[in-house]
Design a protein around this nucleic acid. Structure first.
Lengths: 143, 143
DNA sequence: GCTACTATATTTGTATACAAATAATTTGTA
DNA sequence: TACAAATTATTTGTATACAAATATAGTAGC
């Protein structure tokens, strides 16, 4: 196996994402929905621009995703503060139920894949990812 | 920012991927092609099944990707050993040129995002990702 | 040799994902 | 006020991405 950082990052994320969807097979969710539900669980009522930013997807992608989630009754969109440009997104009761299921799945899988690492190794892994992530945000902003 | 492992993994990979495509903007490549070029650079002549496995994508996805890469003259497909079921994929001269450009970009960006970490931190980060990656492969196989 | 089974690639249908263009709204500024 | 500029969401077009079904080719057991 290629052990470069970029390959491990790509492969690990791909495997993790697939495993999450496999474990959520009974939940009736499509591939893009778990991350949005997870984000809204922490930031219910966000506007679409911020959800897109937090989920690392394009606002144009989010539009279609939210359309389907609204049709399925997972979320509601509404304007607020008289600002008719921004749309605030709220989880419905069904949305909160799915969010808890997603959260449980993510936490369990995370526990499982980190089980081979001791406390020190976990701390280094998370700290390293956080630093790389922040560096990438800086790189992006500079352009 | 959410500092859970799964969020950092998703966000970092998404940012990295976007930045790679931004830096390769002049290369005329689409989003799925860099990882295939990179894989073939290390494993020229692989069969599609193994490329899909190495790139963490579905064989069905790879079919369309390789069709476009073949049309653009980046790769060639041919059968070998009298086995007409498997297709071996080879980089063309143009493919090798693009592969070197991709490799250079990946290496440079990797250097850049890891620049804030010392040797020990890098070693822990790579080791941690490798262990998680292997754990996920095991989880997948068990099903 | 024949049939059931397995392996590999492709097709089809739906859902992301992004770039570029568009629409509607708000803000800034004269 | 008026009008240019910026903000936010959507539309359109092309390219992944996967599930399920299909087509073809190899393998095993008899």
């Amino acid at each position: 196996m290629d052990r470069s950082f970029h390959y491990l990052l790509m492969a690990t994320q791909g495997l993790f994402q697939r495993q999450v969807m496999a474990e959520l097979a009974g939940a009736g969710l499509t591939a893009g929905q778990p991350k949005v539900l997870d984000y809204l669980g922490l930031h219910d009522g966000s506007v679409q621009k911020d959800i897109a930013l937090g989920c690392q997807i394009d606002p144009a992608t989010l539009t279609g995703l939210l359309n389907r989630m609204e049709e399925k009754g997972l979320i509601q969109r509404r304007t607020e503060d008289g600002n008719r440009r921004s749309l605030h997104v709220y989880l419905t009761q069904l949305g909160w139920e799915k969010q808890r299921e997603v959260r449980r799945t993510l936490d369990q899988l995370e526990q499982r894949v980190l089980s081979g690492l001791d406390e020190k190794q976990r701390a280094y892994l998370l700290e390293g990812l956080l630093r790389v992530c922040k560096e990438l945000i800086d790189v992006e902003v500079l352009q």
